[in-house]
Amino acid sequence: MSTPSAREYVRDSVRELLPQVRLRHWGRWVIAAVILVILGALAYGASQGDISWRDIPYYVISPIILQGLVNTIILAVAAQVSAVILGVIIALMRISENPVAKWFAAAYTWLFRGLPVLLQILLWYNLALIFPRLQLGIPFTDVVFVDLSTNAVMTTFVAAFLGLMLNESAYMAEIVRAGLNSVDRGQIEAAQSIGETPLQRMWRIVLPQAMRVIIPPTGNDFINMLKGTAMASVIGYVELIRAANNIASFNLQVMETLIAAAFWYMVIVSVASVGQSYLERSFDRSDRARGGPTRRARRRLARDLVTPPLVRSHP
């Protein structure tokens, strides 16, 4: 093989480059076209349906649907917040040194995670069938502090709340336990070495670090909880679906009212998703923990970015 001479190199560096023909990706065009055709066909088909689209906005803002929306949110928030608190307690029992507490927590999780939520709601709602009265007193004596009719206590809200909350608390216990276990043992020892009490160690050192692991699945669970409230409609709690059905039961616009409910589900789920990513960011100091810029440095960086450079490098 002969090495090219210096002259050949010079010629190569001055000659014009050959034109290049880019690959056309015909496959992508075909697939895109097929998708658009199918969507068009579906839209046309939907427009031929026996549905009065014009009525849907009216249902979206109707007082009955809005009341259902409020009830859905109240039930979901109440059940989720209580489940988080109960879940933390169960998780702490699970990781404690007390064998009875450990065993109880494991059994609790096994039971309330194992049963379908709908079944749990139905069991609570029908509690009066086996316990007509709820009494708080001292057994084997006549001392009774509280005596209530079960049906008066077990409203549709309470039954749905208990079913959803107890099931979710079992899941939360597992999430919290995973979060607590994710914190390095050395962190607890360091906190011990500076004299922190068990409560301080948990609150100041372990929980803030465990939050990074706990928040994302908790957010997912809350979104599931928002949709899970639909099961409360079965026992007559007037959440979104029951509200939609209530309207449809006298004007038969079943689909119109359900689509209005669907609209609100999408809205609250989207809001919850945004809230989740905001929470994640505020608790996730891992950008800094991974060596990213501090808040002060980021602010400086942002300021530098908006300051126009003195000399532009390109005309």
């Binding site: 004299g195 922190e196 301080q200 670090q209």
Partner: peptide, 19 residues
């Protein structure tokens, strides 16, 4: 814990609080 506060310890793996 109160007793421990009067002693100090430095660990092999530092164990600084990352947050």
């Amino acid at each position: 814990s109160k007793q421990r506060a009067s002693t100090g310890m430095v660990f092999q793996h530092f164990n600084l609080f990352p947050h």
